[in-house]
Design a protein around this nucleic acid. Structure first.
Lengths: 343, 343
DNA sequence: ATTTAGCACTCAGTATTAAAGAGTGCTAAC
DNA sequence: GTTAGCACTCTTTAATACTGAGTGCTAAAT
């Protein structure tokens, strides 16, 4: 559909624009070493490329910039996977250098390093806890009327919540209850827990403990809490350095969306495994106009855990970012497997 | 030192500028109902006020704006405490409306409401955990080589950390150790814990448990973790709406400082009890130029727990913000006392 | 001795114009 | 099919002038 020469010109336009953020004109193109024909020829080809919708003008007599369709084509067909250089490999590896055992810490650090390396904003969707399996439930009474319920999952995630102890409850009953719960529920994944409690365990409790229901509700609440997985950010202010965002309303909208988190969650969540690139309006969010989002998932074995993402202008270094995300997500996956795979 | 008329003029200038963000001129002042003399008279008085350093010009023929010294005087001498209206009282009370037992949640919500009410950025320094007293230590083994240490404090704060189990350790010994620790350390405040462990408990452990030291280190690490108290923010992007921050470099510096958190921590931390107002360069931080920070502490009984703060332009609604912070910090203190005071 | 009116002067902001530079599209020659 | 050439468009920048808000000072009025 495109001739080789059109392809060449298009590629050079995109590459140049990604670097300089300036519309690319025929004359400056003709001076590039990869291009051997005159500016007039280029102009003809550019007119065709524009008609096909791959590039556009910012005004009647300006140079050309890639359109969203153009970026899409570029990403789908023209991207040459870029090898990371030693420095970059080293930086990514530094995430795993210290022996940190906290999943959250690793994830947090990933976001930080990623944003520093790219100068874009990085977003990491923390591990989904809902598929974790229950390891232990504990209840620690604080005083006569409050106690704290703690649940630990098999990946070492700890969730806790305070609750009110019903007046009428015998302290011994608390212990009894915790024992029953641990006995029956260990190994059950968190999103099945709710079901299992009411279907199988509630009856059992009723036999042994008075007012079991009041306390049970608090525990169920604790389990339900992490409805949305946690988001981690790096370089939230990096967008301010991008020339395309030297516009207050634009920045305001974007930062506001980031602060709210809901919008981001929407954007990142619905993603299949592997790398995905969403360009501009493909994100279905006006705040994301002129922005691209590249996401990659990380996992333990076959179980998809979470997502890492880079948010930048549509004029993004797709090749480098994709390589980076690929490398990091692979690293994360293998490192986490090492830690949590119950071999 | 200032005549009544100068005081009046100064007050009107500050009030007007706080509202409009525009330099105030003699003519517009003379039209105000509180002022009964001519613009020429005002000009003379303003010249004096400028000489005294309370107001300044943005350029030779501009109206006047308050100087930092002026704001300081205004805050110290001219502020009339403003009563909150019903709506505002209601909004603050809504923070405590739901029966939330999580300290963190209350604090988080305070930050949110505060920023919404003021349109400035709010910062809340979470409760200092270090003076909490240990309620319980627990260790939950996840698999053969990792376990998770959990400590619970008397205010219901939960801290946890994963660690490596030394190969040579007998599983029974873990339980033994936890029992000894709980026995000896319950009721000790977190910042004394470290000391107490090495001085009194370590010896005891040595008698009973092989390789106790490896594990002990992990537990000590867990305790040490929350070195800085957690910061909560509200309305980080509100600064973008303030006209004085329609300057990219300014905003970038400020948002960057906020993102880093260290700087903020420095600013907020060193504060006595009660309300404190720091204006512009009094904050000793170039990113805070043209910004004021108002802080208030909250406490349980005599024990100072944390700080709530509002960050805005020096042209801030001091009166309203101070009233608001006063009211909220009092509310927070009493509400938290109700929850955690072990009556 | 204050207060005020009047006037010359300053400066930011805005609009207008002109000129320069980058780029295009089209046509005609190669 | 390719290229040189030219007219044209549009942005950017600088220069210029004008307006309006405001000041400082002086001299008159109170």
């Amino acid at each position: 559909m495109l001739t080789d020469r059109q392809l060449l010109i298009f590629q050079v336009i995109v590459d140049d624009f990604i670097q300089t953020a300036q519309p690319v004109g025929s004359r400056s193109l003709s001076k590039k070493s990869e291009i051997s024909f005159s500016s007039a020829t280029i102009r003809n080809e550019m007119a065709d490329l524009e008609e096909l919708g791959f590039i556009e003008k910012t005004h009647t007599s300006s140079g050309r910039i890639p359109s969203e369709k153009g970026y899409r084509y570029y990403v789908d067909h023209l991207l040459s996977p870029q090898r990371l250089n030693k420095r970059e490999v080293h930086q990514v590896k530094s995430i795993f250098a210290e022996r940190i055992y906290e999943l959250e810490n690793i994830v947090q650090k990933s976001a930080k390093i990623l944003s520093e390396m790219t100068n874009y904003t990085s977003i990491v969707l923390g591990p989904a806890v809902r598929e974790n399996k229950l390891k232990k439930i504990q209840i620690v009474p604080l005083n006569d009327h409050t106690a704290i319920a703690i649940i630990v999952t098999d990946t070492g995630h700890v969730e806790n919540r305070m609750f009110h102890i019903p007046e009428s409850l015998d302290p011994d009953d608390i212990e009894k209850m915790v024992n029953i719960l641990n006995d029956r529920l260990t190994g059950v994944s968190l999103d099945h827990l709710n079901n299992k409690i009411y279907k199988e365990v509630a009856m059992l409790l009723r036999h042994h403990i008075h007012h079991y229901d009041l306390m049970l509700n608090s525990i169920v609440d604790t389990i339900k809490m992490p409805a949305n997985e946690k988001l981690f950010f790096g370089g939230k202010t990096n967008i301010l350095s991008q020339p395309e965002f030297h516009d207050f309303d634009k920045v305001k909208g974007l930062l506001h969306m980031i602060e709210q988190e809901d919008g981001i969650y929407e954007l990142i969540r619905k993603n299949e495994a592997g790398i995905s690139v969403k360009i501009g309006r493909e994100n279905n969010n006006t705040a994301m106009d002129n922005c691209s989002l590249i996401t990659a998932s990380y996992s333990i074995g076959a179980e998809q855990l979470g997502t890492i993402a880079i948010l930048g202008p549509t004029r993004m270094e797709y090749s480098r970012v994709i390589s980076l995300l690929q490398y990091l997500s692979k690293g994360l996956s293998s490192e986490l497997s090492k830690l949590y795979q119950n071999e």
